[in-house]
Simulated scan of single mutants.
Amino acid sequence: MIGQVSDSELELMKIIWAEDGKALYAQIMDALAETGNHWQKNTVITLLSRLVEKGLLKTNKIGRRNEYTAIVTEADYQATQAKALLDKLYEGDAKGLVSTLIQREMLTATDYEELKKFWEGGNGNR
Protein backbone atom coordinates (compact mmCIF):
# COMPACT_ATOMS: atom_id res chain seq x y z
CA MET A 1 0.00 0.00 0.00
CA ILE A 2 1.33 3.39 -0.99
CA GLY A 3 0.95 5.85 1.86
CA GLN A 4 0.30 9.54 1.70
CA VAL A 5 3.11 12.05 1.70
CA SER A 6 3.28 15.67 2.79
CA ASP A 7 3.12 18.47 0.22
CA SER A 8 6.86 19.03 0.59
CA GLU A 9 7.62 15.33 0.12
CA LEU A 10 5.37 15.27 -2.94
CA GLU A 11 7.27 18.20 -4.41
CA LEU A 12 10.50 16.21 -4.11
CA MET A 13 8.86 13.14 -5.64
CA LYS A 14 7.66 15.22 -8.61
CA ILE A 15 11.23 16.42 -9.18
CA ILE A 16 12.53 12.85 -9.12
CA TRP A 17 9.73 11.58 -11.37
CA ALA A 18 10.52 14.40 -13.83
CA GLU A 19 14.12 13.13 -13.96
CA ASP A 20 12.97 9.71 -15.21
CA GLY A 21 12.71 8.41 -11.67
CA LYS A 22 16.32 9.05 -10.63
CA ALA A 23 18.02 12.17 -9.34
CA LEU A 24 21.13 13.15 -7.46
CA TYR A 25 20.82 15.43 -4.46
CA ALA A 26 22.38 18.31 -6.46
CA GLN A 27 19.80 17.89 -9.22
CA ILE A 28 17.01 18.03 -6.67
CA MET A 29 18.42 21.22 -5.12
CA ASP A 30 18.80 22.80 -8.57
CA ALA A 31 15.20 21.95 -9.46
CA LEU A 32 13.97 23.41 -6.17
CA ALA A 33 15.93 26.61 -6.79
CA GLU A 34 14.42 26.90 -10.30
CA THR A 35 10.96 26.96 -8.73
CA GLY A 36 12.01 29.58 -6.19
CA ASN A 37 12.28 27.15 -3.28
CA HIS A 38 15.48 27.62 -1.32
CA TRP A 39 15.11 24.92 1.28
CA GLN A 40 17.92 24.21 3.70
CA LYS A 41 20.10 21.16 3.06
CA ASN A 42 18.97 19.49 6.31
CA THR A 43 15.31 19.98 5.39
CA VAL A 44 15.73 18.30 2.02
CA ILE A 45 17.77 15.44 3.46
CA THR A 46 15.15 14.88 6.17
CA LEU A 47 12.34 14.83 3.61
CA LEU A 48 14.25 12.44 1.35
CA SER A 49 14.95 10.17 4.32
CA ARG A 50 11.25 10.09 5.16
CA LEU A 51 10.43 9.13 1.58
CA VAL A 52 12.94 6.27 1.83
CA GLU A 53 11.36 5.16 5.14
CA LYS A 54 7.89 5.29 3.56
CA GLY A 55 9.09 3.04 0.73
CA LEU A 56 8.72 5.54 -2.09
CA LEU A 57 12.44 6.04 -2.70
CA LYS A 58 15.65 4.08 -2.43
CA THR A 59 19.16 5.44 -2.30
CA ASN A 60 22.23 4.38 -4.18
CA LYS A 61 25.69 5.66 -3.31
CA ILE A 62 27.67 6.95 -6.27
CA GLY A 63 31.03 7.78 -4.77
CA ARG A 64 30.19 10.27 -2.05
CA ARG A 65 26.88 11.27 -3.59
CA ASN A 66 23.41 9.81 -3.13
CA GLU A 67 21.23 9.01 -6.07
CA TYR A 68 17.53 8.80 -5.21
CA THR A 69 15.41 6.39 -7.22
CA ALA A 70 11.62 6.31 -7.17
CA ILE A 71 10.28 2.89 -6.24
CA VAL A 72 6.71 4.02 -6.90
CA THR A 73 5.77 5.51 -10.27
CA GLU A 74 3.89 8.79 -10.47
CA ALA A 75 0.95 7.00 -12.13
CA ASP A 76 0.76 4.42 -9.32
CA TYR A 77 0.90 7.15 -6.67
CA GLN A 78 -1.81 9.16 -8.43
CA ALA A 79 -4.04 6.09 -8.76
CA THR A 80 -3.66 5.21 -5.09
CA GLN A 81 -4.37 8.75 -3.94
CA ALA A 82 -7.34 9.09 -6.31
CA LYS A 83 -8.81 5.86 -4.91
CA ALA A 84 -8.26 7.08 -1.34
CA LEU A 85 -9.97 10.39 -2.15
CA LEU A 86 -12.85 8.62 -3.85
CA ASP A 87 -13.32 6.27 -0.91
CA LYS A 88 -12.98 9.00 1.71
CA LEU A 89 -15.20 11.67 0.18
CA TYR A 90 -17.60 9.70 -2.03
CA GLU A 91 -17.68 6.26 -0.41
CA GLY A 92 -16.23 4.82 -3.62
CA ASP A 93 -18.91 6.37 -5.85
CA ALA A 94 -17.05 7.64 -8.93
CA LYS A 95 -20.28 9.06 -10.37
CA GLY A 96 -20.55 11.34 -7.35
CA LEU A 97 -17.04 12.68 -7.96
CA VAL A 98 -17.66 13.25 -11.67
CA SER A 99 -21.01 14.88 -10.89
CA THR A 100 -19.28 17.31 -8.53
CA LEU A 101 -16.63 18.10 -11.15
CA ILE A 102 -19.32 18.87 -13.72
CA GLN A 103 -21.63 20.80 -11.39
CA ARG A 104 -18.78 22.97 -10.08
CA GLU A 105 -17.46 23.49 -13.62
CA MET A 106 -14.13 21.85 -12.83
CA LEU A 107 -14.58 19.58 -15.85
CA THR A 108 -14.84 21.48 -19.12
CA ALA A 109 -16.75 20.37 -22.20
CA THR A 110 -13.39 19.66 -23.85
CA ASP A 111 -12.32 17.54 -20.89
CA TYR A 112 -15.61 15.66 -21.13
CA GLU A 113 -15.16 14.99 -24.85
CA GLU A 114 -11.59 13.77 -24.33
CA LEU A 115 -12.73 11.48 -21.53
CA LYS A 116 -15.56 10.20 -23.70
CA LYS A 117 -13.10 9.35 -26.51
CA PHE A 118 -10.82 7.66 -23.99
CA TRP A 119 -13.71 5.67 -22.55
CA GLU A 120 -14.84 4.59 -26.02
CA GLY A 121 -11.31 3.46 -26.88
CA GLY A 122 -10.60 6.37 -29.21
CA ASN A 123 -7.58 8.58 -29.22
CA GLY A 124 -8.20 10.94 -26.34
CA ASN A 125 -5.12 12.91 -25.36
CA ARG A 126 -5.04 11.83 -21.72
Rank of each mutant, 00 (worst) to 15 (best):
K88C: 02
V72Q: 05
I71G: 04
L12S: 01
M29R: 14
A84E: 13
N123S: 12
E91A: 14
N42M: 11
A23K: 05
G21K: 10
N60F: 05
L89Q: 07
D87F: 09
D76A: 14
Y112P: 00
W119N: 12
E9W: 06
T59V: 10
G21D: 08
I16A: 09
T73F: 03
L32E: 07
Y68A: 04
V44K: 10
Y77K: 04
K41R: 14
R126K: 08
Q78L: 14
T46R: 15
K117S: 08
D20N: 15
Y77H: 13
E91P: 01
W39R: 14
I71P: 01
T46G: 09
R65K: 15
R104D: 08
E9N: 02
S99Q: 09
T59R: 13
T59N: 06
G55T: 00
G92N: 07
L12F: 01
N66A: 05
K58F: 08
T80H: 07
L115M: 15
D111R: 07
G63S: 05
L12V: 01
L97I: 01
I45G: 00
K116A: 09
W17G: 07
T46H: 15
A26Q: 09
A79Y: 09
G122Y: 05
L10P: 05
D7I: 10
D87E: 15
E11Y: 13
L32N: 06
T110E: 15
D111M: 12
L86A: 03
T69R: 12
T110D: 15
I102T: 07
L10Y: 13
L48V: 00
L24F: 08
A82V: 10
E114Y: 00
M106E: 12
Q4S: 08
E113V: 08
K116N: 08
S99G: 05
L89M: 08
Y90C: 03
L32T: 00
N66Q: 11
K41C: 01
